[in-house]
């Protein structure tokens, strides 16, 4: 059962009204324009015990992602493929509004939205992760932890997952006499797509990109759009209750394409990827 969010918002109405008021003039509380995203920083390899890891901050929001590989059986309906699962936890140290305990619906939603973009864009070549058809394959566990929450954990989580995947060194196994064994070598995942998400906040008839915490409290609705490098839309999630004016969708898609390209260019440059 999904319950209405019970937490009392401590953001004053006067601030929410100001956010809208500024937006009508093309301005925001932190000096950004409506379509500016906050500064992003990426640190990879912080967790050496993970096969890939990234600490990403987007403004005041910090996300830690780690990847672990195990050998398991392929799904019976996809015997020639390896697999991956995405989990997310909103850690209580990130915000007073996050409770300790198993991932709640917000964490599950975050994991599934990030998963969807990665899966639908065919970012990971799952066939290459199969060792013995129907029997043995690599399974990637991609775990997202929100460490510090200042609004919009979707976009930095996607960036962190892609950074961890792009820089991962997966322990290589080989098949010897029908059995899998570790070779002591490592391989790169060779990503086939880079699907970045762009999160929109909508207030009345206007929208902004990458809402920070105070802005989130003023939103009627938010919308997350994932776009791959061929400008295909690979994931969408309308999030939070409220009415979204239909005529905004097309504009937001255009902005999502533009912003995801901007993020992708900088991502490739920052991580020095050869793509």
């Amino acid at each position: 059962m999904s319950l209405s969010q019970m937490k009392k918002s401590l953001t004053a109405r006067i601030v929410q009204e100001k956010i809208y008021n500024l937006l009508t003039q093309g301005m925001r509380l932190d000096g950004r324009s409506p379509t500016d995203i906050r500064p992003v920083s990426i640190v990879t390899g912080l967790v050496e015990k993970a096969d890939g890891s990234a600490l990403v901050s987007m403004g005041g929001t910090k996300i830690l992602v780690g990847i672990k590989t195990e050998i398991g059986s392929p799904y019976s309906d996809r015997p020639k493929e390896g697999s991956f699962t995405v989990n997310a936890e909103l850690l209580p140290l990130a915000s007073i509004s996050f409770e300790p305990g198993p991932p709640d619906e917000r964490g599950v939603e975050l994991a599934r939205v990030v998963d969807r973009g990665i899966r639908e864009s065919k970012c990971i070549d799952l066939e290459k992760l199969c060792l013995i058809e129907g029997e043995k394959a690599y399974i990637l566990f991609i775990d997202i932890y929100v460490l510090d929450y200042d609004g919009n954990y979707y976009d930095p989580s996607t960036i962190a997952v892609l950074a961890a995947l792009a820089t991962a060194k997966i322990p290589k196994y080989e098949v010897v006499n029908g059995k899998v064994q570790k070779t002591g070598e490592y391989f790169n995942l060779q990503l086939q797509a880079l699907p970045f998400t762009v999160t929109f906040g909508i207030i009345k008839e206007r929208f902004l990109v990458d809402p920070q915490l105070e802005e989130e409290s003023a939103l009627d609705v938010s919308l997350i759009i994932g776009v791959d490098e061929k400008n295909n839309i690979v994931s969408i999630q309308k999030n939070s209750p409220g009415l979204m004016p239909e005529n905004l969708l097309e504009q937001m898609i255009d902005v999502a394409v533009e912003k995801s390209n901007q993020i992708r260019r900088k991502f490739i440059e920052t991580l020095n990827l050869k793509i």
Partner: peptide
């Protein structure tokens, strides 16, 4: 975190 240790 799940990835803090050798075995997930």
């Amino acid at each position: 975190t799940s990835f803090s240790v050798d075995e997930r």
